[in-house]
Amino acid sequence: MIKARVIVTLKNGVLDPQGKAIEGALGGLGFDGVGSVRQGKVFDVELSSTDAANAEAEIKAMCDKLLANTVIENYSVTLI
């Protein structure tokens, strides 16, 4: 069994209204040093494969086809 963690983030230049709202809320709680907040997503995927290279290639294909929208998002894959 191989476990992978996929992190999906918005590309630079793509407006993130949710991140902005969270940034504002942190300021409201008295955290003055917050420069900016960008919200993303984390997926933990378990694969039955035992071949790390295969697993990584497969997860990347999953990201391109479904987990990320590459028009607006970047992704990174880490095997854990």
């Binding site: 209204p17 949710q18 028009v71």
Partner: peptide, 11 residues
């Protein structure tokens, strides 16, 4: 169709 539809800026 090209592009993406994102959360309204007003949330």
């Amino acid at each position: 169709l090209p592009g993406a539809l994102m959360r309204n800026t007003s949330l």
